[in-house]
Design a protein around this nucleic acid. Structure first.
Length: 210
DNA sequence: GACCAGGCACATC
DNA sequence: GATGTGCATGGT
C-alpha cells in the first residue's frame, strides 16, 4: 500500500507541481476559511473573506462581538450563511474562552487533545478540524475530503463507503508524518478532483491514469 | 435550468 | 449504526 500511495503522489506532483496551499493569509484566516468552505466552492469563500476584510472583521474579537445578522450579511456569498454564522460564532467563542484567541496557545496543545476539542465545537467535523490542524497549526494530520474519497474509490484502493477515520488511517499508518507532505498531497488531490476526477467519470488527461 | 462545490448536525428508523 | 434531509450562493 505504501508504494501505491507514493506513486499517486509522485505522479500528481510531477505532472502538476506544488500547489502552494492553503490559499489564505495567516492562521486565523485559514481557520475561518476552513469553516466557510464546507461543501462550498473556494471562489465563493474568497468573496466572503474579502467582505470580512473590508469590514475589518477578520479577527476573533470582531466576529465574537458582531451581531448575528451583520455577520450573516458579510459571509452571505459563501452560502449556508445562517448555518455558517452559528458555526463561526461557536468557533471563536471556543477559541477566545479556551485559548485566549491566540494561535500560539493552540499550537502548544497536543494534537490528539486539540482535535477532540475541535470536534466538540458545534459545526466542526473531522475535515474542518483536520484542515485547521494541518493548514493553520502545521500539525501532521492527513485531511480527507470528498475528492480524496472519490479518487481512491475510483482507483479501487478503498471503498467510498468507508469512514473518514479509515481513510485517514490509510495515509497516516503508511506515510511519514510530515506536514509539508500532507499539505501538498491533499492539495494535489483537490486539484486532480476538480480537473480530472469529476463526479461523472471521464478521467481523460488525468496524470493518475497514464 | 440542472449540476456541482475542501461538510455538518439532526431526525428518524 | 445506517440512511435521509436541510442548509444557499455562484460558476459552468
Amino acid at each position: 500500500m505504501k508504494n501505491v500511495l507514493c506513486n499517486i503522489y509522485k505522479k500528481s506532483y510531477s505532472a502538476l507541481g506544488p500547489q502552494h496551499w492553503w490559499p489564505a493569509n495567516g492562521p486565523f484566516e485559514v481557520m475561518v476559511g476552513a469553516i466557510l468552505t464546507q461543501n462550498t466552492n473556494w471562489s465563493n469563500v474568497e468573496k466572503a473573506i474579502d467582505n470580512l476584510k473590508t469590514a475589518q472583521a477578520l479577527t476573533a474579537v470582531a466576529i465574537n462581538t458582531m451581531t448575528v445578522s451583520r455577520l450573516a450579511g458579510l459571509i452571505r456569498p459563501a452560502g449556508y450563511y445562517n448555518v455558517k454564522t452559528k458555526r463561526l460564532k461557536s468557533f471563536v467563542d471556543f477559541y477566545i474562552k479556551k485559548y485566549g484567541g491566540r494561535v500560539g496557545n493552540l499550537k502548544k496543545c497536543k494534537t490528539p487533545v486539540l482535535r477532540e476539542e475541535l470536534l466538540n465545537v458545534h459545526g466542526i467535523g473531522p475535515e474542518t478540524a483536520d484542515s485547521i490542524l494541518l493548514y493553520a497549526l502545521e500539525k501532521p494530520v492527513f485531511v480527507i475530503d470528498a475528492y480524496t474519497k472519490r479518487i481512491l474509490s475510483r482507483h479501487g484502493i478503498m471503498d467510498d463507503s468507508e469512514t473518514y477515520d479509515s481513510f485517514q488511517a490509510l495515509f497516516q499508518n503508511v506515510l511519514p508524518l510530515n506536514v509539508e507532505l500532507f499539505n501538498e498531497y491533499h492539495a494535489l488531490f483537490v486539484r486532480i478532483g476538480k480537473e480530472f476526477c469529476k463526479p461523472t467519470p471521464s478521467c481523460s488527461g488525468c496524470p493518475l491514469s497514464e
